[in-house]
């Protein structure tokens, strides 16, 4: 008992002294950006210091993008957010945590990089997967993120639907049936992107993993990889929005650091790290340098193609909307 008290006091003292030594900012991010921001943070800290900004340390929190947005809303003291879908930042803006014009505060709609969804299969592609249509075949098992809680899962469902629309020449009923066939093959809905990955890679569940290209390329290009990437014919453009949480940063006096941190993502050094982690950079030079690795892919955008996130959320992902309806039908058919 006494010993644990001593330990606790010691620990408190140590963590308090560390916390006071320097400026600290917290980046609340989506699940699969773990490696990306580990690299970004390691590069930003010396860059900021040499530019005369002083000592700074960056803490990370990762989770499903929407869960992270809610945590910030409920009191997680994040100075910056780096999410994987626009409406999670918009939610913070609507509640006064982020500037109303947040999308205009940084270049490219405040999205320093983007990605698309791709399909990861096991080595040799034993099920012969070429495109989304192959995921609708009976007997193919899919692992993906839960579309109710993670942007990663939402982009996947939108991609299925978009592919269905394109194949049928814009027939909504056929697109719905197509998306339903694919969803019926999903064996695990994980809460976050990395959770889905480890289920597919470590626990060897599923024939395919549907997730951001940033994740699939990283896995397929690692030394001794036992996976292959299939780039589908159409995908949904996934922009990764960033914002300063002014409500938190203003109070903590970290606005300047927070802004510098997000600006860093747009610098050639930042863009290089982004590209190295298999995201698609905005900087043309950096993009050219990595062009051989990032195959061109046809994308549709949530705004023009689907009518914006608000509409998409209402029609696809809200309680009782399309995804719920489809999953319910699937479960009912499975029982019969």
């Amino acid at each position: 008992m006494k010993r644990s008290l001593v330990l606790v006091t010691l620990w408190l003292a140590v963590s308090a002294s560390v916390a006071r030594a320097q400026t600290e900012i917290l980046n609340a991010s989506y699940d699969i950006s773990r490696e990306l921001f580990a690299e970004v943070n390691a590069a930003f800290v010396p860059a900021y210091k040499s530019s005369g900004g002083g000592d700074v340390s960056i803490k990370q929190s990762h989770g499903g993008s929407s869960r992270q947005a809610r945590s910030v809303l409920e009191g997680l003291k994040a100075d910056v957010v780096t999410f994987n879908q626009l409406n999670d930042v918009q939610l913070l803006a609507d509640n006064g945590f982020v500037a109303k014009d947040w999308a205009a505060r940084f270049p490219f709609n405040a999205a320093p990089y983007y990605s698309v969804h791709s399909i990861l299969v096991r080595k040799g592609n034993p099920k012969g997967i070429r495109d989304w249509a192959d995921l609708a075949r009976p007997g193919v098992t899919i692992v993906q993120v839960n579309p109710k809680t993670g942007g990663n899962g939402r982009y996947a469902v939108l991609a299925y639907y978009a592919a269905g629309l394109q194949a049928s020449g814009g027939d909504a009923a056929k697109a719905r049936a197509f998306a339903k066939k694919i969803l019926a093959n999903v064996v695990v809905f994980e809460s976050g992107g990395r959770t889905a990955t480890s289920t597919f890679t470590e626990r060897e569940i599923g024939d395919v993993l549907v997730t951001f290209e940033a994740e699939t390329l990283g896995l397929a290009r690692a030394p001794g990889a036992v996976f292959e990437v299939v780039t589908p014919s159409v995908s949904v453009l996934a922009e990764f929005p960033v914002a300063v949480v002014k409500k938190v940063a203003a109070r903590r006096g970290t606005e300047a650091v927070a802004r510098a941190y997000l600006d860093f993502l747009y610098t050639p050094a930042g863009q290089e790290i982004i590209a190295r982690n298999h995201y698609r950079p905005r900087n043309a030079e950096v993009a050219a340098r990595h062009a051989d690795k990032l195959t061109p892919v046809k994308t549709v955008e949530v705004g023009p193609f689907f009518g914006g996130w608000e509409k998409v959320t209402k029609e696809f992902f809200d309680n009782g909307a399309l995804v719920d309806v489809l999953l319910k039908e699937i479960a009912a058919e499975r029982v019969n």
Partner: peptide
């Protein structure tokens, strides 16, 4: 361990 599939 559940897999957490909605409705299942």
């Amino acid at each position: 361990i559940a897999g957490n599939l909605p409705f299942q």
